[in-house]
Design a protein around this nucleic acid. Sequence first.
DNA 1: TTTATTCATTGCAATATTACGATTAATATT
DNA 2: AATATTAATCGTAATATTGCAATGAATAAA
Lengths: 109, 109
Amino acid sequence: MGLTKSEIFTEEQNNIAALAKVLGHPARIAILQHIIKSNSCICGDLVQEIGLAQPTISQHLKELKNSGIIKGNIEGTSVCYCIDQENWSHISATFASFFEFSSSESNCC
Amino acid sequence: MGLTKSEIFTEEQNNIAALAKVLGHPARIAILQHIIKSNSCICGDLVQEIGLAQPTISQHLKELKNSGIIKGNIEGTSVCYCIDQENWSHISATFASFFEFSSSESNCC
DNA sequence: TTTATTCATTGCAATATTACGATTAATATT
DNA sequence: AATATTAATCGTAATATTGCAATGAATAAA
């Protein structure tokens, strides 16, 4: 029904999935890569860089902000976004620990 | 329009996003965690473990398989799934390199 | 004050996803 | 052969997501 039954999963499972979901769109990856590259923060040149309309970029930024991956500062008429360092390393660790599994022999049956 | 404009993004961006998207559902995280834990491969006890109907689990398994994260072996009437080790480490490295960014000073403007 | 500029929000259309009942295909068992 | 078991597929309903035009709110510049 298009409705995720999140109540039957653990908090950790919902958490990892929610984070992955936010990263699950190329526009949001592109936005993050651009923010990382320019280090100095960005506003609406993302619209120029990426080829999407302003409301669309704004929407993606909102999702990234809600998830805690980025944060924004108001600067006069424009808004400046950057990586939320603290959350970033936390999220990075979450994924690293999820992937931490390399027992050589997981022979399939 | 519910339609991702993947043609305007780089292959890398589409790639990371596609992988993250697959991980972007708690059921698929739960399936992966269960496969990892049981190491030995699984089939339909995922239906028991997780509280979703068989067609739903089957659908999630299909997505995981299509993305290359897991692979399945036919075993008589049942199918046995396990982590695709080679792809797993590749995907793990992809995420690790994406998150590899810690320049302490990304002061927001 | 008027006019730009910048960005968020609203509302909508198109498409995608999630979940499942019903069915199907395939191998095992009796 | 008849029946059971396992898992994929089909079809469908409900909900979510993506993208944008239009609009709004807020500050800056004239």
